[in-house]
Design a protein around this nucleic acid. Structure first.
Length: 650
RNA sequence: GGGCCCGUAGCUCAAUCGGAUAGAGCAUCGGAUUUCUAAUCCGAGGGUUGCAGGUUCGAUUCCUGCCGGGCCUACCA
């Protein structure tokens, strides 16, 4: 609703400027006045035009206000301050429009969008860093879907890399486990936890004696080769850990459609096709001298502006090693050609995991099932990968561009975000030994290699049990299963909100105290606002839908000081679709979280000041109920976009 | 050395394309409940937006330099 009137206003202003002054402004800046009394929109454009028109800003504002005249849905325009133009909506009309508004579909074409997120190495338990990735990614998927885009969700599985090899080494060399032993271990409820420790042990074993690294190389080679016991063990482990990751993420209602694995990219020879294209088009060249002699290399994106004679070995990225093997970035280029349907080869597909919701998750295979959905060949992609891989991502984009796939390159978005780290206090509380140097740092990076980190399932467990205690106290009358379900919703809500409230560029210095909080700017705060609203309708014996269906002219209740206060609730509610659109265009889900909190805050304030059920005037009572219904409706959809459901009671 | 990011209240973070008096939460202190459940609400204190210049009618935001911190910069993934 807010967006609709905003566009209407901008169109009128732009049209007037064109007719009156012959000006064609590409963008008209619009913002919100500091107080609702001033109106819903503020235009600072008079300041901008002052120089071009050689008139005082205030004079221009006056001309604009007089010239534009009446706009449907608006009460009036007025000049404010040194030359702002404030626009006031007709509140009664706007309120009715909001009640009737349906969520606008932004999707222009029906071609699929691909979001890749999670992509956790299948060699150990997922940790808080992976949670941030998955929650950001899943929320972005929900944002796109709720705006009408068809989306495929992919989770890339590096099942043949060094990290899996290290766990295999750990089990075989340190734990002396046979294939049969490992098969038995996999049956344990949290096999990924066992791997967590084994991986850390293997990593420190390498440090004890560099010769131990030979085992890694041997193992890695055997895995890539295939058809041997080591490869079978690696597959056993990585598949079991992958299954655990899916279970962990499913606890947060995070689902995937397809799991492309590196083993298939390797064995289906995706790279050969990519390599051929890249050689033909001169994207790669064979280095003849220097330290990279004998390697096929690409210019680094950071060196794009350098002249040929300024280039050094450091400005090139090795894609194919001198021994002929391809590196990670090369495989990623091939994979991304596939994503855009530019490779000329496809995966086989097998069913892998069925979610309780009925969604089927597929996995890549050499020879797949005959009937399967079509993945890849999409119009746009979003890769949710932390900022440390920015350069690798840029290299892939530049490879696409250099191959002449500019359209693909333009629709490739690295959804970049900062890492989750531990505060030194949190790390030492968890018993991790820190050097003096590290104690003085603002945060300590999570490290799977060192075994430093908060495991995702542990954090979820703690959040749920902490919520459980509260629910048990507050609702002893409810049966066990209902209390458990409520605690789960609250715990998950707290976690998802926590990961979304920070903007992507902010490093999260993780601390249990903050993450476990259910008060203030948290998920449960917003959930609680909805529960309060729901309680009103339950007591009143009405549904919010009934109340909204009978909407009347609320004009007189939206005037004056009290009216202003309540109008703030309506206005915030009306901005939901604007905010969601902003989240998509800026790839920043934090705006949705901030907005949900603000709306919940406004509602809680309203709830406190106006006692609805005891209101004597039936018409006013109806208006107050409608206010609660609108805030509740918008909050529920905002939370749903964040993957947060609302319990029936709290 | 080069590239990217960050520096805002005691702490953790916001601030829409450069706009009106820089806002929240936590913590601290003081209040509010015979009411739709207090996981709530109200109030108070707390700021040279790292420093110095520049552009602008206007800078937390843009530019330059400096200081401090982080990440990347492997023939690892």
């Amino acid at each position: 609703m807010y967006l609709y009137f905003q566009r209407l206003l901008i169109d009128r202003v732009r049209k007037f400027l064109q007719e009156q002054y012959g000006l064609d402004l590409p963008t008209v800046v619009i913002e919100q006045p500091p107080k609702v009394e001033f109106g819903e929109y503020a235009l600072p454009l008079s300041f901008e035009l002052a120089k071009r028109l050689r008139k005082a800003p205030r004079k221009i504002a006056e001309e604009l206000v007089a010239g534009i005249g009446k706009i449907p849905g608006f009460e009036r325009l007025e000049v404010a301050g040194a030359g702002y133009i404030n626009a006031r909506l007709c509140r009664a009309e706007a309120a009715l429009a909001l009640i009737k508004s349906e969520f606008p579909s932004l999707a222009a074409d029906r071609r699929k969008i691909l979001v890749e997120h999670s992509s956790i190495n299948p060699n150990k338990a997922a940790h808080i860093g992976h949670l941030r990735n998955a929650i950001l990614g899943d929320t972005f998927v929900r944002l796109l879907r709720c705006s009408g885009y068809p989306v495929d969700v992919q989770n890339y599985i590096d099942n043949t890399g060094v990290q899996v090899a290290d766990v295999v080494v750990g089990f075989r060399e340190l734990e002396k486990k046979t294939k049969a032993d490992i098969e038995a271990l996999i049956q344990q409820p949290r096999f990924d936890y066992i791997c967590w420790d084994v991986y850390a042990a293997a990593s420190s074993w390498y440090e004890e004696d560099k010769k131990n690294l030979d085992k890694r190389a041997e193992t890695l080679h055997a895995i890539e080769e295939g058809n041997n016991e080591i490869a079978q063990i690696a597959d056993l482990i990585s598949t079991a850990v992958l299954r655990r990751h899916l279970e962990t993420m499913d606890r947060l209602s995070i689902e995937y459609d397809f799991l492309p694995r590196e083993s298939e990219i390797l064995h289906l020879h995706f790279w050969d096709l990519a390599f051929r294209q890249m050689k033909e088009k001169g994207v790669l060249y064979l280095e003849s001298g220097g330290k990279n002699s004998g390697c096929w290399v690409m210019k680094r994106p950071s060196a794009l502006n350098k002249k040929p004679d300024e280039l050094t070995d450091d400005d090139t990225k090795v894609i194919v090693r001198s021994n002929g093997t391809v590196g990670y970035v090369g495989k990623d280029i091939a994979y991304h050609l596939w994503k855009f349907g530019l490779l000329g080869r496809d995966f086989g597909y097998c069913k892998f995991y069925r979610y309780p919701t009925g969604v089927q998750c597929w996995i890549s295979a050499m020879k797949g099932e005959p009937k399967h959905p079509h993945f890849g060949d999409v119009s746009a992609i979003y890769n949710v990968i932390d900022t440390r891989q920015a350069e690798a991502q840029n290299t892939v984009v530049e490879a696409l561009r250099a191959l002449g796939y500019t359209n693909a390159a333009d629709h490739y978005t690295h959804f970049s975000y900062e890492m989750v780290a531990l505060t030194p206090r949190c790390a030492s509380e968890m018993g991790y030994p820190l050097s003096e140097d590290e104690m003085g740092k603002p945060y300590i990076e999570v490290s799977g290699r060192r075994g430093f980190g908060v495991k995702a399932d542990d954090l979820i467990d703690r959040l749920i049990s902490s919520a459980q205690k509260e629910v048990d106290i507050r609702h002893p009358e409810l049966p066990d299963d209902e209390r458990a379900a409520i605690a789960t919703q609250i715990g998950v809500g707290a976690l998802r909100y926590f990961m979304l409230k920070f903007t992507k560029t902010s490093v999260i210095a993780f601390d249990f105290k903050e993450a476990l909080s259910f008060e203030g700017e948290t998920g449960p705060y917003a959930q609680y606002a909805v529960v309060r609203a729901t309680n009103i309708f339950r007591k009143a014996g009405l549904t919010p839908e009934q109340v909204l269906a009978e909407a009347a002219d609320f004009g007189k209740y939206l005037e004056g000081e009290t009216g202003n206060e309540i109008w703030e609730v309506w206005l915030a509610a009306s901005k939901t679709s604007t905010v969601l659109e902003q989240c998509i265009t800026t790839t920043e889900p934090a705006y949705a979280a901030k907005h949900a909190f603000q709306l919940a805050q406004l509602f809680n304030n309203f709830y406190h000041r106006h006692h609805i059920l005891t209101e004597a005037d039936p018409a006013r009572k109806h208006f107050l109920l409608a206010t609660a219904a609108i805030a509740r409706r918008e909050l529920i959809s905002l939370l749903a976009v964040m993957g947060i459901s609302v319990p029936p009671v709290m």
